[in-house]
Simulated assay, not measured.
Amino acid sequence: MVYVGTSGFSFKDWRGVVYPEYLQPSQFLKYYWAVLGFRIVELNFTYYTQPTWRSFVQMLRKTPPDFYFTLKFPGSVTHVLWKEGVDPRGEIEKFSEEIRPLLEEGRLKSSLAQFPFSFKFSARNMEYLKKIRDGYPHEIAVEFRHYSWDREEVYSFLSENRITFVIVDEPKLSGLFPYKLLVTSSRAYFRFHGRNPRWFEVEGEERYDYLYSREELNLLLKDVKDISQKVEETYVFFNNCYKGQAAINALQFKEMLEGKM
């Protein structure tokens, strides 16, 4: 089973491109699955704000039973506490409590720990990953940005601890983690960020200003198909969300996967 979606669904600059101009933000999620036909979404707001179980209950009510979610760990866990030498398990426990509605309905596929470029390989940071794994009894996927994590001992660690390695497509720039087709659990997790060559020069949403070509999507599709034969489930998320490009590419990719293009 291969699920295709986008990293987030509620963006102002998607109006007039992905969503009709008249559509209210409260209707975006319903449009995302009912009209666009997606069956999964990666929630990014959980990185920026402390989620509440009420927000998840509302999302569950707006989507059918066969619609699923992945979500990002809070920024405190992936971007702050490791710098301060603080054990993340307290934050993870609070996070686990708030996402309980998704877990109880079996609608959460995985949780993503996306670490910044400044999070480099070290024994201390490996131990930090272990604390996250020990403190979170559900499915975890980890994305590295710094190339120093590209080593066999890291992949062995992920496999031994049932952590899904996130396969990332991003600009081929010095220091960034390479595009590496690898499986470390029963699931595969792809994140396509785009290939903006100005990655280190721009900030925020502009970093993901990129539209994949049909030729590029074809090559990615082959890789997704090959990897999906080795796992039980595969998740593919387009994160080139600037001005709706993620949704455009995800729709193209989904149709190509289904043999409609």
Rank of each mutant, 00 (worst) to 15 (best):
Y32I: 10
Y32V: 11
Y32K: 11
W33H: 15
W33N: 12
W33L: 01
W33Q: 07
W33T: 00
A34Y: 05
A34C: 10
A34F: 13
A34Q: 15
V35G: 15
L36G: 11
L36E: 14
G37I: 14
G37M: 15
G37F: 15
R39I: 08
R39D: 13
R39S: 14
R39V: 04
I40G: 06
I40P: 02
V41H: 07
V41Q: 09
V41A: 11
E42N: 10
E42G: 09
L43G: 02
L43K: 01
L43S: 01
N44V: 10
N44Q: 15
F45V: 09
F45A: 11
F45W: 14
T46K: 07
T46W: 06
T46F: 05
T46E: 04
Y47Q: 03
Y47T: 05
Y47L: 01
Y47K: 06
Y48I: 11
Y48V: 10
Y48E: 07
T49P: 00
T49D: 00
T49G: 01
Q50S: 10
Q50W: 12
Q50F: 13
Q50H: 05
Q50P: 08
Q50G: 00
P51R: 04
P51G: 01
P51T: 06
P51L: 04
T52I: 03
T52Q: 08
W53Y: 08
W53V: 03
W53C: 06
W53R: 08
W53H: 10
W53E: 00
W53P: 05
R54D: 06
R54S: 08
R54K: 03
S55D: 00
S55G: 06
S55P: 05
F56S: 03
F56Q: 02
F56N: 05
V57K: 06
V57A: 08
V57W: 05
Q58V: 02
M59W: 14
M59I: 02
M59R: 10
M59E: 05
M59V: 01
L60P: 09
L60V: 13
L60N: 08
L60D: 04
L60K: 08
R61L: 12
K62A: 02
P64A: 00
P64E: 00
P64F: 02
P64I: 01
P65M: 03
P65N: 04
P65D: 06
P65Q: 08
D66W: 10
D66Q: 09
F67H: 07
Y68M: 04
Y68V: 07
Y68G: 00
F69E: 03
F69W: 04
F69M: 01
T70Y: 08
T70I: 13
L71V: 04
K72T: 01
F73I: 12
F73C: 13
F73N: 11
F73R: 09
P74I: 12
P74F: 12
S76T: 13
S76N: 07
S76F: 11
V77H: 13
V77S: 11
V77W: 12
T78R: 12
T78L: 15
T78S: 15
T78D: 12
H79G: 12
V80F: 03
L81N: 12
L81P: 10
W82Y: 15
W82R: 07
K83S: 09
E84V: 13
E84T: 14
E84H: 14
E84Y: 15
